[in-house]
Design a protein around this nucleic acid. Structure first.
Lengths: 339, 339
DNA sequence: TTGAAAGCGTTACCAG
DNA sequence: CTGGTAACGCTTTCAA
């Protein structure tokens, strides 16, 4: 059996309540007693049981993050690693741990949210990849469960969210390509309903208004392989685009692969701008232009908010916080004269 | 206040114990009562509190994974995403969740292990990135805490571990380069003491024995940027290698970048083989040859073992399980005649 | 088959 | 300032 507060109390000849106070750093414990108890604790290698503590204090010290991905489709995704890495970076300085789950289906989503919230497995949730009419959000609000959304809540509700202005970012990226002299700029997004994709497509449309007649919009799945397949079809067409905005770097890498196979060279045959500004951008010749989402800042802000909500501390700033984006121009979007 | 078993019991006019039995699927509950209780549960949207359950049943349903990385250095690492993704893939079909933590220092490692084991925050641990004389292992064994090591335990102890034969894999990779006609094959590993790196360097040395005089061994940090810097120095030297084995794909990408800057072309100026066979391998021209570690299998085996240990089910097979590797030859290591 | 009751290890309240 | 004690919500033993 492991050593409990009861044991420590007996050995130190104090009450169990006092041991608890020492542990909590209660000021009104005699220094001498505190010292004695502390020593007994160390001598017997005592460690409080988080489970008992959780039951009593109604806090788990866990933050939940549920990802929605097809089986095996996670390793492909640099957004995911950046997200998780930045969350972990943040939590390192805070007394919380990350509880990570992945589900494949919408039904699974709901079930796991039940498992995590209603059963109080975690103190709060970070939501990502919100889709229009997100069922999770209504449920969370109804249960008054602490959560923060990374993305666009699509409502005027008092939902705490942190996001980029994806419409503006895509508009800027598209304009940049048009300004570089590209004439048939297209956009490759995810399936309809994925908020971040919809937002960026909206930005694209805003940018080409009056400057380009055809709306060249494609919907693909996440991942470089899926993107490569879609891109092969796109680029094989005789009315193919001469530049593309792509939803993320990894999909863009698929497009790069497809371009290579099609014998098209970047940037003159195909201009490219994508999103995330991950380290993948340095892996192709002359670099891949990409919009930085400033994930570390964004995630930090999101986590800070979530912890405030959980701990019932006041929140500064608006419910919906916008982190500015930044277009990092590299070779893939800069037309070269000496073509 | 949320609804408890007590509430359900009162409403259904049964004892709380019976509600618990219904929940546990106890066979000897009258079908009629079971039905009544089940309906009341649903009607009142009852969800058991995991925390109370954990305290009583001494199970948390959580698997711990602690990563050791410098701040911000996680997003760079494809091994990490593959590992986490594969763990999540496995856990989806099992009643466990993943609790993920990151630490930067060795001291932090110890502290967090204390926090996770001794406080019983998780039911078991997955260990990775073991270094020689791993303090964590001794501690875990002493506490009889369930764990499984992904990597080389370096001892004959009864440690449950799953690993590749990294010595053999590196030997094969090096031989492949020598067979392709490269004459100065080097290896870029991590810092000394990282088991997987040490093992691969040993394999390299075994391969060049009798076939190449100079041992060209470099130690770099993880990540493509660090690798690129080291590689720039290496490739600037007049006695530079004509081929390299690199510890992982991301570091190899750094080497590719350095080669490009140095005006060296793959594969004839510089042959390259790395490890992990991640999707990065398709991102360079003609592809990057890489050793597949078969992570999904490996992780699956590791998780299966861990769950068996936790649940005290018998373990089949040896304590140390070796997952075979496979060299995936692509363009970066195949010398071309028409140079 | 069901109910009563004893914990699990902690926190926090209330006396003293 | 300290000790006794009542929860927290559940599982499980023991009787009935």
């Amino acid at each position: 059996m492991r050593v409990t507060q009861q044991d420590i109390a007996k050995i130190a000849s104090v009450s169990q309540a006092t041991v608890s106070r020492v542990l909590a750093g209660d000021e009104k414990v005699e220094p001498e007693i505190r010292k004695r108890v502390t020593e007994v604790m160390r001598a017997h290698n005592y460690q409080p049981d988080v489970r008992a503590r959780q039951l009593r204090s109604r806090r788990t010290g866990l933050i939940g993050l549920v990802l929605n991905r097809p089986a095996g489709g996670l390793g492909e995704d640099p957004f995911f690693s950046a997200l998780v890495a930045d969350i972990l970076d943040f939590l390192r300085d805070h007394p919380y741990h990350l509880c990570l789950d992945m589900v494949t289906s919408e039904a699974g989503q709901t079930a796991i949210y039940d498992d995590m919230l209603r059963s109080r497995r975690v103190d709060g949730l970070i939501l990502v990849e919100s889709e229009a009419r997100d069922h999770r959000i209504a449920r969370l609000q109804q249960d008054k469960f602490p959560f923060v959304l990374i993305g666009n809540p699509l409502t005027g509700d008092e939902i705490s969210s942190v996001d980029n202005d994806n419409v503006a970012a895509a508009e800027l990226a598209t304009r940049h390509l048009l300004d570089q002299g590209f004439r048939r700029v297209g956009i490759l997004g995810a399936r309809r309903g994925v908020t971040v994709s919809d937002d960026r497509i909206a930005g694209y449309q805003r940018a080409i208004r009056g400057r380009q007649h055809d709306h060249l919009i494609w919907h693909g799945d996440f991942g470089s392989r899926a993107a490569q397949e879609v891109a092969q079809t796109i680029l094989a067409d005789c009315s193919r685009p001469d530049a593309m905005v792509v939803l993320d770097d990894f999909m863009a890498m698929g497009v790069v692969g497809a371009a290579r196979k099609a014998g098209l060279r970047l940037p003159n045959d195909l201009g490219l701008v994508s999103f995330n500004d991950s380290n993948l951008c340095d892996l192709i010749d002359r670099g891949l232009s990409s919009v930085s989402l400033r994930m570390p800042e964004l995630v930090k802000a999101a986590c800070d908010r979530l912890l405030r909500i959980i701990e019932e501390r006041p929140i500064d700033g608006p419910h919906r916080l916008i982190i500015p984006t930044e277009l990092r121009v590299r070779g893939s979007s800069q037309r070269m004269e000496a073509a």
